[in-house]
Write a protein that binds this DNA or RNA. Structure first.
Length: 373
RNA sequence: GCUGGAAUCGUCUAGUGGCAAUGACAAGAGACUGUAAAUCUCUCGCCUUCGGGCUUCGUAGGUUCGAGUCCUACUUCCAGCA
């Protein structure tokens, strides 16, 4: 069982430590999205230096290329990628359900590779097997994510997610026993709560997931800060306090991190910060700016004078603007370092503020400045 | 000097009688939340009450209902020959 210590609680929010075989994660924490076993534009060294405690890779992408067997052959994703800290894998459910022409059955999902059109099928069992082969510390259950506002659609997806969760758990336990027999490090399973924006479905899903007794929980299908507080309140009031909760995919907007932490989420992952960075949209305490805008051409001040990242300590907005305009790779590197540092630091500060009882002040001050409301 | 050829939005370019004029780049702005994303979208002559109006394709004339497109002269550039 994954060890998780809750050090302090404030309402639903908590400060804790997740102990994984590859190290501890002090929570709340932002987990960098490393879809193809790399954080785009960044090296693992840069990720370590900007303070990232953990990263999250994606089973769908790694199944297509290079394949779980190759990663196993490399000695697991830690050796393969040189990320020797805690690591998550997402199940691939999210990606598969965003592809065109997927065939969903009770057994699993048939889809075509977006790369070469090759036919694939992923089932709860095959996702578990792939994740064990990849070898991250924490695995997500293979879930059905419905992108719909319709209650019936959400119910069907949730019921399927639950049925698949039972199978994920059985397969996971089997693989876990085999690993123990071979003296391999333990890997852990998070159940994924679905139910869309419907509180009764969310409650039902949280209850179901809790009863399965996984190592922790992913909260899926959350797309906007809208209604997020209510959804999280419902779910996290039901989920057991002694297990970690990961809010899947949220964190592009800093407010998501505050609301997520306030309502009891321990970790977050999001592609937003690095994608924004590659497209020139950069976080500052006063809101996001587009560094490509002409007004930064002659701005010889740091991107964020309060930031301690390599980008802000050494370069100016004018230089970043120039690098983006001439489309240099370094533009994306520096921007990614900054944006990733910005969200990691924001969540670190959320943790500190929860520790010393100043969360409300920090939240109010941050949001007021960032969103100018 | 002679003989050919060419001049179209910031740049390169499409266009051979119905055209405010093609495409690319540049420029300006926007989007992005478990990454098919170093991607995508919009604007890009001037004005507009968004109906439209006005001025444009080296310059000046001409032919034509209508000219970036045809004719004449001029200007500039390129190539070949002297």
């Amino acid at each position: 069982m994954l060890k998780f210590d809750v050090m302090k609680k404030q309402g639903l929010a908590r400060v804790g430590v997740i102990h994984t075989p590859h190290g501890d994660i002090k929570t709340p924490a932002f987990v960098g999205a490393a879809t193809r076993a790399t954080v785009k534009a960044l090296t693992m060294k840069e990720m370590r230096e900007l303070g990232s405690q953990a990263i999250l890779a994606n089973t769908y992408h790694l199944v297509l290329r290079p394949g779980p067997e190759l990663i196993k052959e490399a000695g697991g994703v830690a050796n393969f990628s040189s990320w020797h800290g805690p690591m998550f894998t997402d199940s691939g459910g999210f990606q598969i359900f965003s592809l065109p022409n997927v065939k969903i059955s009770e057994n699993g999902v048939k889809f075509k590779s977006h790369i070469d059109g090759a036919n694939f099928e992923m089932t709860p069992e095959s996702s578990m097997q792939a994740q064990w082969a990849i070898g991250a510390d924490i695995h997500m259950a293979f879930d059905h994510l419905a992108k719909s506002e319709n209650y019936e659609d959400m119910k069907i997806a949730m019921d399927r997610t639950h049925a698949w969760l039972e199978r994920c758990k059985i397969e996971h336990d089997k693989l876990s026993k085999e690993a123990a027999k071979n003296n391999k490090p333990e890997q852990y399973l998070y159940a994924v709560v679905q139910g869309g924006t419907f509180n009764d479905l969310r409650a039902e899903s949280a209850k179901f997931c809790a009863e399965i007794e996984p190592d922790g929980f992913g909260i899926g299908g959350v797309f906007t800060a809208d209604k997020m507080d209510e959804m999280l309140k419902t779910v996290n009031s039901i989920l057991p306090e002694n297990k970690p909760r990961h809010l899947l995919g949220m964190g592009e907007e800093p407010i998501d991190l505050f609301v997520g932490a306030e309502y009891g989420c321990d970790t977050f992952d999001c592609v937003g910060p690095t994608r924004m960075a590659r497209n020139g949209s950069l976080y500052t305490p006063n809101g996001r700016i587009n560094i490509k805008n002409a007004k930064y051409k002659h701005d010889f001040t740091p991107l964020d004078p309060e930031c301690d990242c390599e980008c802000c300590k050494n370069y100016t907005r004018a230089y970043l603007h120039h690098l983006f305009k001439v489309d240099e790779i370094t533009a994306k590197v520096l921007a990614s370092i900054h944006n990733e540092r910005f969200v990691v630091k924001t969540v670190d500060k959320i943790r500190e503020s929860l520790e010393n009882g100043t969360f409300e002040e920090y939240k109010t001050e941050f949001l007021k400045r960032y969103y100018k409301t």
